[in-house]
Amino acid sequence: MRNINDSVSTKHTGHVRLGDHLCLPFASDLEQREVVSAYIADGLVRGERVLYYSDRTAPGAIDAWLDPRGVDGALAMARGQLEVRPAADDEFDPDVLVDGIRHAVRDARAAGFQGLRLTGEMSWALPDTVRLHEYESGVASTVTGSDGLAAICQYDERLFDKADFSGLVSLHPGLVSVDPLHDDRRLRVVPTYSPRGLRVHGTVDELTAAPFAEALAHTADWPERVVVIDFADLQFIDVAGIRTLVRAAEALPPDRTLQVRHLAPTLRNVLRIVGWDNTPGLLIVSGGAS
Rank of each mutant, 00 (worst) to 15 (best):
M77Y: 00
D89Q: 01
A78V: 04
E83C: 04
G73R: 03
M77L: 02
A87Y: 03
A78L: 10
L82S: 06
G80E: 06
D72N: 14
A61D: 15
R85D: 06
L66S: 05
M77T: 13
R85I: 12
P68E: 15
P68Q: 14
G80P: 06
A78W: 01
G60K: 02
G60P: 04
A61Y: 00
I62H: 02
R85N: 07
P59L: 08
G60D: 11
D72C: 05
M77H: 11
L75E: 13
R69I: 13
G73F: 03
M77S: 15
G60L: 04
R69C: 01
A87P: 02
V84T: 14
L75G: 12
L82C: 09
A78R: 09
I62P: 03
L66V: 04
G60Y: 01
A87S: 12
D72E: 07
R85T: 09
D89K: 01
G70C: 10
G73E: 07
P68N: 14
A78E: 11
D72I: 06
A78M: 10
M77P: 00
L82T: 06
R79A: 01
G80D: 03
V71C: 08
A64S: 10
A87V: 01
A76Y: 00
E83D: 10
W65A: 11
A78D: 12
G80N: 06
W65L: 06
A87M: 10
L66W: 00
L66F: 03
R85E: 12
E83F: 00
D63I: 09
R85A: 13
A64K: 03
Q81M: 09
E83A: 14
M77Q: 15
A88F: 05
A61V: 15
V71F: 00
R85W: 05
L66K: 03
E83L: 12
L82K: 03
G73Q: 07
P68V: 14
A74V: 12
D72S: 11
A87L: 01
D67C: 01
L75M: 11
L66H: 02
I62L: 13
A88Q: 07
D89T: 11
A64Y: 00
A76Q: 10
G80C: 07
G80W: 03
P86G: 14
L66M: 02
A64Q: 12
L82I: 08
M77N: 07
V71K: 01
P59W: 01
V84A: 10
D67M: 05
A76T: 01
D89G: 15
E83K: 04
G73S: 08
P86V: 13
L82V: 09
Q81N: 07
L75Q: 13
L75I: 02
P68C: 15
W65G: 10
